[in-house]
Design a protein around this nucleic acid. Structure first.
Length: 738
DNA sequence: GCAAGGTC
């Protein structure tokens, strides 16, 4: 039997269909669907099916020595038990195995992982490798026509990366967590990708803090014909000069020149993952949420594979056919317009062989999915149509004027052809229509303005911007960048969007920059990439690279361990400041998040035991002190993050506590009234039930009810009701008097 | 309980 291994299930299915030319037979092996035809069987993996880890005995954070962690024999063990079993079974019966995983480094490693399992079941199995860069019939048939050899060096390079990442990540994560005292659920992590990413955010925040705003002035005027003009110079840094010019302005403006030119605004490139996340971020989706929805759209058949670095549509993609699927439905007009045009697709800078750019694969309507899913789907459809539309054309008009010898300017822009902007409304370009003017024309000055402004600090990174930056710096991959960002939130290193680093993040980055600077810089990824290339080319062995990395880490720990106490002080100070909620309303000391004896958490006063002010906090979830303060109490708002759930904005802890108490008091009052009703002589359980069915649940309800109406609805005697009412009213008076 | 990389 000939066993063929693909990287994922649906690729296995498609390969089987293309090779068999008919419908292959699907059969489950250990719960995994495999596709049979002729003497062949195609099986899909789920990416990596094994992973590197420490052997048992290394999981006690406090007891294992860092040096042991650095030099431990790393083991590979199955992470996908069922798939491994299925592969084992199929390997036993096969005399040949063909690796048909993705055509990239991780793909090669995933293939070798599968091969090792098959070889374990059948040592004499013969292996080969097919390489293709698109799953089209042509490419697949060609690839299987001339299989090559498995590239073990390439796979080794991937393995080296795994080991280096694990060793550095585990050793530094444990060191930082232990040294800061943050063990258990709230541990602090360090990694080759996450730490440089966090450093970017911290550096940005430092820039913002160090920013000194500069004052400048702008002069503008309003003329006849509702024309707004600005002084040519733009920003005046000299206030006195600006004022003297402003005051010297007369009441007549002369049009000196009018220049018109056309501007073409080119349509955007097809979506790769980075551009997609960036666009989704622009309409309010977090990177992780955008990818989760894209994943759903992909597995539901609405869009193509969402993890790609490619910005050029492959030739094999029938674009006309694809646009035609939108001739019905909400995108009909745009699709028809595109079909009438020349349909020359745009292309981005990056052309890779992994997968096509993200494009829609099936038509849909709003009713087919949830609102958020629709928004993402619509974005993908509109982007696709935009890449096939013509440019948007504008007439730009530059008008130069003169007011009392001072140069002024007005700029207008009028769209003469919407082009791609007609179907892609996400990036706005506003029109600015100027009135009809002629050179030499004189206009009255109706008003003038001198505005004092300040330069603004750089802005914080939004998630879209950060993903772009990571891409440019080579940090992470198309599949992991959004997860890395989520990780920074999960560790409470950052909060909000755009992202603001916490003091913990400052402290961790500072400690790392001082004692292990390479882990905070993108260079570590770059050198690792270079080493991997050397391994892949056969110039150096996997072991040599790992050993070198180990001795580098040893040197880092020489430094770290000799400064452990001082690092601990800095870290704990950072952690402490992140726990300050505000000032105590009773004594003015700091309010701090504290831990009770049984692991419960609460907000307590630093003035304890003299001051015993406290506020409660939820039992579960990570507590984050946000930078938003309550206007009434001055306390910082609290957010609770539970793994896999939406964050819960608890708000001001004092407001929250007051509301909770008010609610409890309300409930207690209600219950007391219910109890009172049952205490009225003559009202037994049956009567209570009847009254309840008519909406009378408390003594107060009864006191306020219409006798006749209630008698009719309950079948109870009017007399009885009236007598009970007297008692109920008396009870009510008594209750309100105390 | 640690990383980053695949995929769901």
């Amino acid at each position: 039997m000939h066993l063929i291994i693909a990287e994922k299930h649906n690729v296995a299915k498609r390969i089987a269909q293309m090779l068999s030319g008919s419908k292959p037979k699907a059969k489950r092996v250990h719960g995994i669907e495999a596709f049979y035809f002729d003497d062949k069987v195609v099986m899909g993996l789920s990416g990596h099916i094994v992973g590197v880890d420490y052997p048992p005995g290394y999981n006690n954070w406090q007891k294992v020595d860092y040096r042991d962690l650095i030099h431990a024999q790393v083991v590979t063990r199955p992470t996908q038990g069922k798939i491994v079993s299925a592969l084992h079974d199929l390997g036993k019966d096969a005399d040949r195995i063909t690796i048909a995983t993705d055509y990239d480094r991780e793909g090669e490693l995933i293939g070798v992982e599968a091969l090792r399992i098959a070889e374990d079941a059948n040592p004499s199995i013969k292996a080969d490798r097919v390489r293709f860069s698109a799953i089209t019939k042509g490419e697949i048939l060609d690839a299987f026509e001339s299989p090559g050899m498995v590239d073990f060096d390439l796979a080794s390079s991937g393995e080296a990366r795994q080991v280096v990442d694990l060793i550095w990540g585990a050793a530094l994560t444990r060191f930082i967590s232990i040294t800061s005292g943050r063990l258990g659920k709230g541990f602090l992590s360090v990694g080759r990708v996450q730490s440089p990413t966090l450093a970017l955010i911290v550096d940005r925040e430092k820039e913002i803090e160090a920013f000194k705003p500069q004052t400048y002035w702008e002069i503008s005027a309003r003329l006849d014909k509702d024309l707004q003009v600005k002084h040519e110079k733009g920003r005046f840094w000299d206030g006195e000069l600006a004022r003297s010019i402003f005051e010297g302005l007369g009441d007549v403006a002369t049009v000196v020149s009018i220049r018109k030119k056309t501007r073409t605004d080119r349509p955007p490139a097809p979506f790769d993952t980075t551009a997609f996340i960036s666009a989704a971020s622009g309409i309010g989706f977090s990177a992780a949420n955008a990818m989760r929805i894209a994943e759903w759209l992909y597995t539901s058949g609405f869009i193509s594979y969402p993890r790609t670095e490619n910005t050029v549509y492959p030739k094999t993609l029938d674009l006309r056919d694809l646009v035609s699927i939108f001739k019905k439905g909400p995108f009909r007009e745009d699709a028809e317009r595109v079909l009438l045009g020349p349909m020359v697709p745009t292309r981005g800078k990056r052309f890779s062989t992994d997968h096509p750019p993200i494009y829609p694969t099936a038509p849909a309507t709003k009713a087919d999915m949830k609102p958020d899913q629709w928004k993402i789907y619509e974005l993908v459809v509109r982007r696709f149509l935009a890449t096939l539309s013509g440019p948007s054309r504008w007439i730009v008009m530059n008008v130069h004027l003169d007011i009392e010898g001072q140069p002024f300017r007005a700029t207008g822009a009028r769209q003469i052809e919407a082009g791609w902007r007609g179907c892609y409304p996400y990036s706005k370009a506003a029109e600015e229509i100027l009135p009809e003017l002629s050179e030499g024309e004189k206009l009255r000055v109706l008003g003038k303005e001198l505005e004092e402004k300040e330069t603004q600090p750089p802005s914080r990174y939004g998630q879209g911007r950060l993903v772009k930056l990571m891409d440019e710096l080579g940090l992470g991959t198309k599949s992991t960048r959004h997860e890395i960002i989520s990780k920074l939130y999960a560790r409470a290193y950052v909060q909000g969007n755009p992202m603001k680093p916490t003091n913990t993040a400052y402290a961790v980055i500072e400690a790392l920059e001082r004692h292990s600077p390479n882990i905070t810089k993108p260079d570590m990824t770059r050198t690792l990439e270079e080493d991997m290339t050397k391994i892949a080319n056969g110039h150096v062995g996997e072991e040599a690279v790992i050993e070198e990395s180990r001795s580098m880490l040893d040197a880092v720990f020489d430094d770290l361990l000799s400064h452990q106490e001082e690092i601990g002080t800095t870290l704990r100070e950072g952690l402490r400041t992140d726990k300050i909620v505000g000032k105590c309303p009773n004594c003015g000391h700091e309010l701090i998040i504290r831990r009770g004896r049984r692991g419960s958490r609460f907000i307590g006063c630093a003035g304890y035991p003299d001051c015993t002010f406290t506020l409660p906090l939820p039992k579960f979830g990570m507590i984050v002190v946000t930078d938003k303060a309550c206007e009434e109490h001055g306390m910082q708002h609290i957010r609770i993050i539970n793994k896999g759930k939406r964050p819960w904005d608890l708000g001001c802890p004092k407001c929250n506590f007051d509301q909770w108490q008010a609610k409890k008091a309300e409930e207690a009052k209600k219950k007391a009234e219910v109890d009172l009703l049952a205490k009225i002589p003559g009202i037994g359980p049956k009567t209570l039930e009847k009254l309840g069915a008519a909406g009378v649940k408390t003594a107060m309800d009864l006191a306020g009810a219409e006798v006749e109406d209630l008698a009719e609805r309950t079948g109870l005697a009017k007399k009885k009701i009236s007598s009970w009412q007297l008692v109920a009213k008396a009870m009510g008076d008594e209750a309100s008097s105390c």
